[in-house]
Design a binder for these strands. Structure first.
Lengths: 217, 217
DNA sequence: AGAAAAAGAGCGAATGCTCACTCACGTAGA
DNA sequence: TCTACGTGAGTGAGCATTCGCTCTTTTTCT
């Protein structure tokens, strides 16, 4: 099974038009989710006909997958930049935290999309998309921890796959907490109104938490 | 703003019938989510007519709210039982982890409610219930950590509010990972197919992670 | 070159399907 | 006979998808 993406005709239209369609669809899906989104509406908002829409994308799913695909590419490039550096594990983690704080604020839309996706229960689509999105970070974090274990930087009595999973959980929820209304309120409930004007506090506390969990002794 | 729940007529039917309806609806919503669930189907499966269904619940939302309401009550009582005990912090946390794993079936609903609330912006339907729960656990975890700090069980150089927040993040994502399709797939990606038949592994590793983060030295 | 024909891009009304919800009609007990 | 409960075919709205059409561009033929 392969993810249905755009048809060839979509590549033949002007870049401007392509971006307009993708931007409109991203906005719409982010606001309404997959089920409640209306392709006819998206087409109208993007200024094209339904017929044209269906010549570019053979189904609603194909349009959705394409939108997700582009979101993932953005995420990938941010992560790649961080991982390319030859910092140590902890410096890399701190960079990721900072990137999450900065990036999710500027790109609330993609985070919402992610939220939408995880809320849906369409198993056929989901497993494909999960593989696409999460494979970026999954292998990466696990490898990072395994390497650090070899170098005796972090404890050896742990399962690096599960610890990578917990680590990722912390980063994902952090991202939600900066991007989604509900999670923002929740973070405020925990740490007060001011948290959002003190990125340093959150970053250093989270680093303390992670260091404690990972490091030797 | 009030949540629509069941009509008076629902209280007048036999308990057996009531349970059958609730159980069927719970299963169905848990499998299909709100949008994709079909009331006519639920009525048929529960062995009652659509008309009867609509005399008990004045809308699809009302049925959903009722189902969620019961799920939340169950969850609350589980948490209460754990918190009532006079165990130490760590024993309590382990009990919560175990409860999350065991009750994942019930939690499917809670998770979906949470996911929808998080992702969508129109949250009029369920916001009250979730806000209730959130404010309960928020204060609870923070107080737990502050107490443990006083007793010099956990480190003193941390902000208990933020550490409570990180802790809750770990527990929430664990819950998601046992309850909803997307996060299940993701956990599988990290730790392989078998994780779901080895609750002990996940529980002990998560406890290690948390202990490392919280404990002194 | 100019006419004619074919190919293709774009359109949007129409189709057909899926439900949430209604209501005219039982039926059983008092 | 009256009331209360229950029934399920029917209604209408929403929406993914189709298809016959127009208009434009390219190709073929004289």
């Amino acid at each position: 099974m392969k993810l249905p993406l755009f048809n060839e005709s979509f590549t033949k239209i002007s870049e401007e038009k392509r971006n307009k369609i993708l931007q409109t669809a991203t906005d719409y899906f982010a606001e309404h989710g997959f089920e409640s989104s209306n392709i006819n509406m998206i087409a109208k908002k993007a200024g094209i006909s339904i017929g044209a829409m269906y010549s570019y994308f053979s189904s609603k799913e194909a349009l959705f997958s394409t939108v997700i695909h582009y979101a993932v590419e953005t995420l990938k490039s941010v992560m790649d930049d961080i991982m390319k550096g030859d910092d140590e594990l902890l410096s890399k983690l701190e960079k990721i935290i900072r990137a999450v704080q900065v990036n999710s604020r500027t790109n609330v839309l993609y985070t919402k999309l992610y939220g939408q996706l995880t809320a849906e229960n369409r198993s056929d689509l989901t497993s494909q998309i999960v593989a696409d999105i999460e494979s970026v970070t999954t292998g990466l974090y696990t490898a990072l921890l395994e390497q650090a274990q070899k170098e005796k930087i972090i404890r050896n009595d742990i399962d690096p796959r599960l610890f990578a999973f917990f680590l990722d959980n912390l980063l994902i929820t952090l991202q939600f907490s900066y991007a989604c209304t509900y999670y923002r309120e929740r973070l405020k409930l925990y740490a007060g109104e001011d948290v959002f004007s003190d990125d340093d506090l959150v970053a250093t506390q989270l680093m303390k938490f992670i260091k404690g969990a990972l490091l030797l002794n």
